Computed example of a mutant assay.
Amino acid sequence: MLKLTSLIAAGALALIAAPADAEVVERDSDHFILRYGVGLETTSEDIYAAIGDVSHWWAGSHTYSGSSANLSMPLVAGGCYCEALADGTTFDHGQVIAADPETGVLLEAPLGPLKGKTTMARWSIGWSPVNGGWTLVMTYVVRGPGIGAFAEAVDGVMGQQFGRLARFIEHGEPD
């Protein structure tokens, strides 16, 4: 298993060579890799706290219930990125593999239409200091038979969520 710090470092290094915005960085029929990056003026503590406050930055239109208020994601190994409805129904969107307040969060998360189709869906959100601020990097590495066909659609959704997270971190509002 990849260590969280190695995954975050690889994402940060790759970001140096690529524009600091959203892109499908690799794709074939059985996998794709998405990467997003942005510079922020905040603290690492605020970044970490914001990631765990997923109900405030994830778009409700990309939940089963239509409301992001039903989402939770405790930042502990084994924590469930879950959606819980008032009737007791719970949707498990992913599991936190690692959470480090100094470097980032790693999840196994086959989101939405990827559920049941992937052999791996690693979602990482990490940050590193740059020129008195922080570079926030999110990657999503997905593997599975025929999964490459989903790359553009998933990129659209994940890019939106990354933008919402970055705005929430810096301004307290996702829009």
Rank of each mutant, 00 (worst) to 15 (best):
L114F: 02
V105I: 15
V24A: 02
D175P: 00
L40P: 01
P129D: 09
W57F: 10
Q161H: 03
S68A: 15
D30M: 00
A14I: 09
D100E: 12
G78K: 04
V141I: 11
G78R: 01
E173H: 13
E173M: 09
D100K: 08
G172F: 07
L40H: 07
T119L: 08
M158P: 00
V130W: 09
D46G: 13
W134P: 02
C82D: 08
L13A: 15
G133T: 10
D46Y: 06
A18N: 15
E26N: 13
D100Q: 11
S61K: 14
P101D: 00
H62Y: 13
I8K: 10
Y64T: 08
V157C: 01
S6Y: 05
A22I: 00
E41R: 12
G52I: 14
W58H: 14
H56M: 07
K3R: 13
G112F: 04
E170W: 05
N70L: 10
W127Q: 12
G94V: 02
L114T: 01
I51W: 07
F162Y: 03
T139Y: 00
L165P: 13
V154K: 00
L107D: 09
I16C: 14
A109F: 00
G94K: 04
T103Y: 06
I16N: 15
A59L: 13
R122H: 12
G132W: 04
L107Y: 00
G146K: 02
K117T: 06
V105A: 04
E152R: 03
S55I: 03
I47S: 08
E83V: 10
H56R: 15
A50F: 08
H62R: 14
C82I: 05
L13Y: 12
L7T: 07
A151D: 07
G11Y: 01
